[in-house]
Write a protein that binds this DNA or RNA. Structure first.
Length: 506
RNA sequence: CGGGGCGUAGCGCAGUCUGGUAGCGCGCACGGUUCGGGACCGUGAGGUCGGAGGUUCAAAUCCUCUCGCCCCGACCA
């Protein structure tokens, strides 16, 4: 390993984006691969990040009237078969439990015994099992709306997996609601999409485009699927959250019926919506740089690390106690409604090595505190949204007084940078020639980062969508909610109701 | 399932073609010198070479079978 690298992560984003991603996951200590195919281990730093996401979203769900519950991991196969499109959509990626016991086999190993009468599916999503329960819980219009959320793990047996972005098992929340009217269910679907949009922007500092999915990208069994789409630094789209209007499809499949005030028996209207640990992958690819992870302060597991510089100090203990008092004073400050979280890193390793570890982990602020600073009653501050070399001396009292403001400033800077990136690489395109050029790299052998979001008209013809996907690997990410101007489809010349977002996607 | 590649120390790899005592870098432990930007020197611990069978005086290396993983494709709300 060279003595000095220009940056902490190799390769850089420009050199090899997918490999850079893997290296950041590793260097930041968020997660690592496990002995189980396609499944990852989320390490404490990554899990703390997920816990912060959970905490904030859970508050939003409760504010909007939802309550948490928990449903079984296993779903009887027959349940999944109830909704035709749903089966079609998920069957190929289901893990199936067929036995309930192991016995010693002829070769000394264990072999499955005790075959189940009916196989159990490990939930890929819970519409059917939750629907079965909801059918018992809903009898009258007085039972509605029913607003439930669960935090859980799900399993989807994907062919190819990528840390956080597509793993066999992942953590998520799934909201499931039942309503007495179509309008109310539609409103719920849109409300939760808004919750996700606001969360992504205000907490993750990740700007997103909310919109409806085309029929080809719709959730199996849904009447309408909405999503928030974010642009990663390689300009590919990441679907960061979905909200589905299920119409009466699942209510009919699960017999969720209620008596109206007029005494008639009606099928209810349902919704479901979710975000997953995929958000961590989105967070990483939105902000991180060639030195590793960059965390927005509102979600960072810790805001500040204090690194005592005791190496050449005449009185190391004095430096340490100065640092401990600083830590305590900082912890008495509030940021974003919670205590400022401080790590005091007293490990006996070299300062440079220590600093780089924290840079790679993405902590928003680093404080180096040694005898010089102590004598001057100041701290030496580095911010993760700036260059590792860009460090300044700040009076201790000023730093403590303004720590919350500084964290807000970092949060805002990250959002501004991400918004600028999204804006820069989103453009209206009105001809097929321009469209193809936009999505074609200069060097096809070693494609450079190119393209982005193309805002083009589309008549609604699924054949066009399929052809473009086939030819360019580009798909319609969503029909943005704020696009209304009609125009002409650049592929067919047909009339188009609105511009849609085209992009290569994760 | 089709095409390609790889399994050797915790991680990353060389050694395999041409059989002959198991190697390197990082990491780890200890000692010393260091320490405000990724330290250096020395010493040391750590390996059934994915597994089974075969050829041979001798197999990480050759042969047969097998297991697993990765990449490309198909697939993917």
């Amino acid at each position: 390993m060279p003595k000095k690298q220009p940056n902490a992560i190799s390769p850089t984003r420009a050199e090899n984006y997918p490999e850079w991603y893997q290296q950041v996951v590793r260097a930041s200590d968020l997660a690592e691969t496990s002995p189980v195919r396609g499944c990852m281990v989320i390490k404490p730093w990554g899990y703390a990040l997920w816990e912060n996401i959970q905490r904030v979203l859970d508050e939003r769900f409760k504010e909007t009237g939802h309550r948490n519950a928990y449903f079984p991991l296993f779903i009887p196969k027959s349940f999944l078969e109830k909704e035709a499109e749903h089966v079609e959509g998920f069957a190929k990626e289901c893990a199936v439990v067929t036995h309930h016991r192991l016995e010693a086999g002829p070769d000394g190993g264990l072999v499955p015994a005790g075959e189940l009468d009916e196989p159990l599916i490990v939930r890929p999503t819970s519409e059917t099992i939750i629907g079965a329960m909801f059918s018992k819980w809903v009898e009258s219009y007085r039972d509605l709306p029913l607003l439930i959320n669960q935090w859980a793990n799900v399993v989807r047996w994907e062919m190819r997996t990528r840390m956080f972005l597509r793993t066999t098992e992942f953590l998520w929340q799934e909201g499931h609601t039942v309503h007495a009217s179509e309008d109310e269910a539609q409103a719920e679907t849109r409300q939760m999409l808004e919750v996700y949009r606001d969360f992504a922007r205000d907490y993750m500092a990740m700007p997103v485009i909310p919109g409806e999915k085309s029929a080809a990208e719709r959730f199996p069994g849904a009447v309408a699927t909405f999503s928030i789409e974010a642009m990663m630094q390689d300009r590919k789209a990441l679907q960061a959250g979905t909200s589905h209007f299920l119409g009466q499809n699942f209510a009919k499949a699960s017999e969720i019926k209620f008596l109206t005030p007029e005494g008639t028996l009606q099928h209810a209207w349902t919704t479901s919506w979710g975000v997953s640990t995929r958000l961590l992958g989105g967070l990483l690819m939105t902000h991180s740089d060639d030195d590793g992870l960059v965390l927005p302060p509102r979600l960072a597991p810790a805001h500040i690390v204090i690194m005592p510089m005791t190496g050449r100090a005449e009185d190391p203990e004095a430096v340490l106690s100065y640092c401990r008092r600083l830590r305590d004073d900082l912890r008495n400050q509030q940021f974003d409604g919670r205590r400022v979280e401080v790590e005091l890193d007293e490990r006996d390793i070299r300062g440079g090595e220590k600093a780089w570890q924290w840079i790679k982990k993405g902590i928003p602020m680093r404080l180096e505190v040694g005898p010089r600073d102590m004598a001057d009653d100041s701290v030496f501050l580095g911010r993760r949204d700036r260059s590792p070399k860009d460090k300044v001396s700040v009076k201790r009292s000023d730093f403590v007084d303004t720590v919350a403001a500084t964290l807000s400033d970092i949060q805002a800077a990250l959002l501004a940078r991400a918004e600028a990136h999204l804006e820069k690489h989103t453009r209206p395109i009105d001809s097929e020639v321009d469209f193809r050029a936009f999505f074609t790299p200069d060097d096809p052998e070693h494609p450079e980062i190119h393209g982005g979001f193309a805002l083009s008209h589309w008549s609604g013809d699924p054949a066009v969508e399929a052809r473009i996907k086939q030819e360019l690997g580009v798909t319609i990410r969503c029909l943005p909610l704020d696009e209304h101007a009609p125009g002409q489809c650049p592929f067919t010349g047909d009339r188009s109701p609105q511009r849609v977002v085209w992009a290569k996607a994760y």
